[in-house]
């Protein structure tokens, strides 16, 4: 799952740092992700994992780091190993 999140961030996050420097707890907004980029990340996550974020999870905090995104996906029932099925 983490690798899929990283791939989505690489494509849609418009981060100002190299992906190699991106740690799981790096603050994505501090790394340059704008509000509009976070929308593209959210939509790509919804497409990739075939889910819809409920309104309560549409908060800035949910998309703050790879870890916070992973926690949200786990809460929505995505399996850790989803990467292998994709």
């Amino acid at each position: 799952m983490i690798e899929q999140i990283r791939a989505i961030l690489a494509e849609h996050g418009r981060l100002m740092i190299d992906m190699e420097e991106l740690k799981e707890d790096t603050d994505l907004y501090e790394a340059g992700m704008t509000s509009h980029a976070s929308v593209n990340v959210m939509l790509a996550l919804e497409n990739t994992f075939d889910l819809e974020f409920p309104d309560r999870m549409l908060a800035r905090a949910v998309f703050t780091s790879i870890l916070s995104i992973r926690d949200a996906l786990l809460e929505l029932g995505v399996e850790e190993e989803a990467v292998k099925e994709a």
Binding site: S35, V39, M42, E52, L58, A59, R60
Partner: peptide, 13 residues
């Protein structure tokens, strides 16, 4: 759909 997150971001900040 994306607008929902932008609204939340705008309010949160």
């Amino acid at each position: 759909a994306g607008g929902r997150l932008l609204k939340a971001n705008q309010k949160d900040q």
